[in-house]
Write a protein that binds this DNA or RNA. Structure first.
Lengths: 237, 237
DNA sequence: CGGGTCCTTGAGCCGGTTCAATGGTAGTGG
DNA sequence: CCACTACCATTGAACCGGCTCAAGGACCCG
């Protein structure tokens, strides 16, 4: 059975071998990670991290997708990241006693877990990894502050466009400029920072404008460029 | 003249010797920093960093205060950080070609500057500093995501209370639970994520409720605890 | 004294949220 | 195979919080 095989995956032959962690460690340390990791099978909807609970370690997505979010006043949720295979989840726990975020699987996923102590050992022994972590955090900070900027300056229509862009980043591209999106209206709303009703209305607007189209429960992006324009997006690095 | 003396400040006897950078380097490297730094005198309102311009290096605040902000659609500004003496400014440029943020002095300030190349040398040669940078970034990410949460879930009254809390963190405490705040309504609005008119209205509300009081252009916080409650703040670490 | 900047306050408008009704779809169990 | 249920998406109506605009006032500085 395929899922059983995944449980036994060896880090040395990990499909995400070029991920942030493994990429910066020599084989000895990859073996160490392999011996000290746990692989979790998370079904869609499974809570991997719960806000305010004690930080125990760090997670890496072997396969699947995970939403990372914060719960605000009135139980309002704001998704701050969509993570996929190869991504780190839980680096926000570094230097904290309690989780500042929650994480939930939005697809059936396999997640690798490493305890705090073991991860610290790996980082301390692989200077290149430490530097890589700085770069990674710098990038995460950038993304977070883009969200801040957008939440405070965009109209809902623009926020929804931005959310679609973010989502399609996490999904594979099929053909030319066609991405597929499979998330509930509620999820999109929590990512965009609005309500599910607004998402529904604006998505249907976008369909009328031929920017996206529906295919069953899927959303196909027909005109990615136009989404970027609406979302006021311009890539600078 | 006092300001002249500050221009000649030696890193080895820096009043912020316990700041993130110097704290993690041995004396040889502090000397290196001393020889390769530039000290800038920035008057109130001086732009230290401008969004979208090329990243040249990293800044440290010797004395004074700086606001760090992003400019969104319609020229709407969102302050994401108030930095003071000892703080790093410009770490957001790491791993980027162009500045994702702007920084402006909100008081007369002295700022130390180190070029990209020299800073990289220092980081690469002081592993402890690298680790410290990871912790620092982790903390910055946490703060940024708190802003995200608040922007998306708080009402304006609550946002203004949160802004006051943030501001008073950057200002010295006088006596028991009394902080003083000296920023324009516009600045407070850009920090809270609202308009100057709303800030004015809610500040006057807070005065009526005896949570703060005005003293000339200053704001005194009489009841910090109450501000925390309004802002839905609870410290967890 | 005059001009500029900032703060305050009220009126009106508007975008977005909330609420509710409806219909579609998938999953479940008889 | 069909009913039953639960969940999700859609749509419109109404409400409301916050923004915009404008007028007036306080204060500072040249």
């Amino acid at each position: 059975m395929r899922t059983q095989q995944l449980f036994d995956v060896n880090c040395l032959s990990c499909p995400n071998r070029n991920c942030s962690l493994l990429n910066c460690c020599d084989d000895n340390w990859v073996s160490f990670i392999n011996d000290n990791k746990t692989v979790l099978h998370c079904k869609k909807g499974h809570h991997i991290i719960n806000e305010e609970t004690p930080v125990n370690g760090i997670y890496f997505i072997l396969s699947g997708k995970v939403k990372v979010y914060k719960t605000g006043l009135g139980n309002k949720k704001q998704i701050i990241r969509l993570a996929r295979n190869g991504d780190i989840v839980g680096h926000r726990g570094i230097n904290r006693k309690f989780w500042p975020i929650s994480a939930t699987a939005i697809e059936d996923s396999f997640i690798c877990f490493i305890s705090n102590e073991n991860f610290e050992k790996v980082v301390m022994s692989n200077p290149k990894l430490g530097y890589q972590m700085v770069l990674f955090f710098s990038d995460e900070l950038f993304r977070s502050e883009e969200i801040v900027k957008n939440l405070s300056s965009l109209m809902v229509r623009e926020k929804v466009a931005y959310a679609l862009m973010k989502i399609s980043e996490s999904y594979p591209v099929f053909g030319n400029k066609i991405q597929e999106i499979l998330l509930s209206r509620q999820d999109i709303a929590e990512l965009a920072g609005t309500t599910k009703e607004q998402v529904s209305k604006h998505l249907n607007e976008f369909v009328k404008e031929n920017i996206i189209s529906f295919e069953g429960k899927r959303i196909l992006v027909n005109n990615f460029k136009q989404l970027e324009i609406i979302a006021n997006f311009h890539s600078t690095r």
